[in-house]
Nucleic acid binder design. Structure first.
Lengths: 157, 157
DNA sequence: TATTTTTTGTTGTATGTGCAACAAAATTGG
DNA sequence: CCAATTTTGTTGCACATACAACAAAAAATA
């Protein structure tokens, strides 16, 4: 069932596209909402961990966060003990936008799950979590420069 | 269950990232594999429909396809009756890469579904298809410049 | 048929994305 | 403690992405 990944890609691109259009009026450019919500929910997180959380390149996260800082949504604070890391915190402006992002995301969830029973919602949530856990190992592996070996493949063309 | 969309986003980004890294050695730059497989599977399709199929902006598709043409993976052919459209076809080079892309995608599916029973695979396939059908309506709506109305929202913060 | 609207495709501009390469602090291992 | 490795962050460059605006053909409507 190769269709699964295509459906998944379509859903992800469509919803991301919608979010980006909708958040433009709050001066959040493409993708920034992803970072901002997570900084609000994990104050003090560092950008390296945030990139892993979102599954995006370290340098992409770095630039997105720099821009969020410049635009006053978050601030970076130096750590007392560790001179290398910069902890991320939402500003008041960032905290004000947070519920708007949540509301939009909730709406997108609601739309995506129209016609789903409560059981089905739970089912897909659990199955997606398991998929994510599976995929995240390969992502770490490949991101570190390793090469995947297709031998285990079922070969279902 | 707002988690659903986050899990979905993580999976999609992680797998896309892996694919892009793996296809680089076949001279396919970021995202191009998406278009190429679909041209191979739908010879004669026009780029407007392809963009809808993939859920990507028309202009993005236009540029990706132009590049695929320049690099010899596909070719654009004028239609006899309709002077406006350009039908897309894979070249031999494109057809040669196709099975490689399929193989990689199959492997990614396999990895993503490790530990899933056959029933679970079918379940998630069906649920994702339904989600996609739901989401695609909103995508069309918003892409045409309309504004979504959050009133129907369950409000599950 | 003539006019309007929709479809399809392109280009300009701005910005996101990610790899390579670098630097400095922290950690690990001898 | 010192050297090697890992972690964390940055910048240069190349390229993807998408909105706005335009153009031309086709389709719809009057």
């Amino acid at each position: 069932m190769n269709e699964i990944l295509r459906e998944l890609g379509m859903i992800a691109r469509a919803l991301d596209s919608i979010s980006n259009i909708e958040f433009k009026e709050y001066d959040l450019t493409k993708g920034q909402y992803l970072y901002l919500v997570r900084v609000c929910e994990n104050p003090g997180i560092i950008q390296e961990k945030l990139a892993e959380m979102i599954k995006v390149d370290r340098t992409t996260a770095a630039r997105a966060l720099k821009k969020l800082e410049i635009n006053g949504f978050i601030e970076k604070k130096n750590d007392q003990k560790n001179k290398k890391i910069k902890k991320l915190f939402p500003t008041e402006k960032g905290l004000n936008v947070y519920p708007i992002i949540r509301r939009e995301n909730d709406y997108s969830s609601t739309v995506a799950l129209v016609g789903f029973s409560e059981t089905e919602e739970e089912t897909i949530c659990n199955l997606l979590r398991r998929m994510r856990e599976n995929v995240e190992k390969d992502w770490d592996f490949v991101k570190k420069g390793n090469k995947r070996n297709y031998l285990l493949c079922k070969g279902e063309t």
